[in-house]
Nucleic acid binder design. Structure first.
Lengths: 251, 251
DNA sequence: CGCAGTCTTGAGACAGATCAACTCACGTGG
DNA sequence: CCACGTGAGTTGATCTGTCTCAAGACTGCG
């Protein structure tokens, strides 16, 4: 029982989480005094599938995901029924969200996950003593920015089919590391989440998935097992077609 | 004549640009040795309205905008006719774009602007010696990430009218600092750019602008002068309505 | 078994895209 | 100074991709 409750045992589950965090630091700094101080202000947390990280524990925190999958969702400011999925994050990712005025952002587990939580200000204060660590955080932030911008571009100009294709390609890359050839994986999120992250409805997600299946580009099995025959071909589909352009006019 | 050509005079125009950059650094570090070293690796550049920053000068660089306005555009990988405007940036902004595999990203001047260009790697190496500077860059990156995510949320779930309203509110905030009451300003970008940044066509931008005008929320004069009667009212319009939800069904 | 939640399918409606004129502002050169 | 051309802005008619709604099939759990 002590092994199940992480807030109970001082040694045990959280050690695994911290080890993963140390390993993610720049080479050679995983056992430095800076790393020790960072671990000292950390707090481990386990999230069961579907469980949200309580907002008080999330605001102005840096969250490291040791293992598992989670979604970063934003509930629209003015009572909106659908909430938008800002990003899916997996083991090894470091999440940072500035507390700011717009609708609250929450982290919700898609599968059981292990987290390490740091107060953002204290983390950065300590990291200032070890610039390589700070720089590593900066690099991660810039990568997240890049991803976010790429996704934004999709939302603006791509058709539903292209968005789904792109989503599958990027998930293949994230979950299996494959960027070409064939690839099989299990999606940790449901159709609803996929739609919310792409700005589409559940029905449209299904419909487009159907079209890709009929085009022979993907196979699905059960709820969430996906098999991509040729990632490159799917990626081509993801890039080419714009919302309406080029379909009607043949001029 | 020497005063006009910045690459000619060693003292003159670029001094103004660097002074603005120093002023943007964390308090008390504007004249530190670190600042000197950063300035030493900098290169000033002037961009005329409509002129792009040549990609070689852009890749893996950090760009500080001393004055003027510019757009960050991404040309879609696969021969797409419309390019997406990722962000509008103004005097005081620091731009950083990682060189990565997807379609090239370019910076194009919307008005004459003064820039200060740094090689990204060298900048960060120097900034490591002065963590407060590095942290400041990180904070800017996180803010950009936040903005990008907020915009992404719009693209996904908001109606054309809401997007335009939100765009006007954020421009009012960025250009005049006003967040409430009435506000007059001149948009530095054309209708086409607005559409490309919001994922809408020029015609739709005009049409929705019309609707807001008829609703008494904004006035326009000439090509680009805008007057917002009540920013708060416009912001309400920006938040409330989703793409189709809540309009048809009254259940 | 029965219930609740997710997934799937199909029919109809609408927001926004496309297309095609036209107006207006502005700079160019005769 | 006035055609003239180019490009941005505007307007309206039409078309279509995606959303909405409704109803059924599948899955897992108490």
């Amino acid at each position: 029982m002590a092994a199940i409750s992480p807030s109970f045992a001082r040694t045990g589950p959280e050690q695994a989480g911290l080890a993963a965090f140390r390993a993610s630091l720049p080479a050679g700094t995983g056992n430095s005094p800076t790393a020790e101080r960072l671990c000292a202000i950390s707090r481990p947390a386990d999230l069961a599938m579907g469980e949200p990280l309580s907002p008080e524990q999330f605001d102005d925190r840096l969250i490291y995901i040791s293992s598992g999958a989670a979604k970063l969702v934003a509930r629209s400011p003015a009572a909106s029924l659908v909430d938008h999925v800002l990003a899916f994050r997996f083991g090894g990712d470091l999440i940072s969200v500035l507390r700011q005025s717009d609708g609250d952002v929450r982290l919700i587990a898609l599968s059981d996950c292990k987290l390490v939580i740091f107060p953002a200000a204290a983390f950065l204060d300590i990291a200032q003593g070890h610039p390589a660590v700070l720089r590593s955080v900066l690099t991660r932030a810039l990568q997240a920015l890049h991803h976010s911008r790429t996704r934004m571009m999709q939302m603006g100009h791509k058709s539903a089919e292209a968005r789904i294709a792109d989503f599958l390609v990027s998930m293949a890359g994230r979950l299996t590391g494959c960027t070409t050839g064939t690839c099989v994986f299990v999606l940790p999120m449901g159709r609803r989440d996929i739609g919310d992250s792409l700005g589409l409805t559940v029905e449209t997600v299904i419909c487009q998935l159907d079209r890709l299946r009929k085009a022979g580009l993907v196979e699905t099995e059960g709820r969430s097992k996906v098999c991509i025959a040729d990632i490159a071909a799917l990626a081509r589909r993801a890039g080419h077609e714009n919302r309406l352009a080029g379909i009607t006019s043949k001029k």
